[in-house]
């Protein structure tokens, strides 16, 4: 994997100057590589990783929804996936291998709101055969970032 992308994946707030130092290149080279990635859609955006449990907006509920569907003749899973991702409540949609077909990560303010979204909007969609809703109860690590207590440095004091 491109080291620049890996670094931005870790921390999108690195300045071009820092990135240049870390990579042993120039700021100009970093800026033009990022610009190219953005133009080509390799980098799709930048956002903060927020620990909502600590933020004031405490009422955020996330669920992982397993969805079994009947693939449509011409478009397979793509069309139904597009239908599902068009809802604002849906954060991510993945096509899965294994026991179900599509997985949607859905956000809402309350358990009830998410449950109603699934039963009233998602489940009635054509081609959806069944859904199973799994609520997230606690986040330990999100997007590669540890949200609970960070591990302590256990190294001894040795010269």
């Amino acid at each position: 994997m491109d080291k620049l992308l890996k670094l931005l994946d870790e921390n999108a707030k690195y300045s071009n100057e820092e990135l240049a130092l870390i990579l042993g290149t120039t700021q100009e080279a970093v800026a033009s590589a990022i610009e190219k990635y953005e133009r080509e859609g390799v980098i799709k955006g930048y956002k903060a990783i927020i620990n909502w449990e600590k933020a004031d907006a405490k009422e955020l509920v996330t669920a992982l929804i397993e969805i079994k569907v009947t693939p449509r003749k011409a478009t397979g899973f793509d069309e139904i996936a597009r239908d599902i991702m068009s809802f604002d409540e849906v954060e991510s949609v993945y096509l899965m291998s294994g026991g179900f077909d599509l997985c949607a990560i859905v956000n809402g303010r309350t358990f009830r709101e998410v449950a109603l979204f699934v039963s009233q909007r998602l489940a009635p969609l054509d081609s959806v055969l069944s859904t199973a809703t799994h609520f997230v109860l606690s986040r330990y690590k999100d997007n590669g970032v540890i949200l609970c207590d960070e591990p302590v440095d256990e190294r001894g004091s040795v010269l």
Binding site: D153, R155, G156, S157, V158, L159
Partner: peptide
């Protein structure tokens, strides 16, 4: 600390 003399 930036004092420790062993790999992290």
């Amino acid at each position: 600390s930036l004092s420790i003399g062993e790999p992290d």
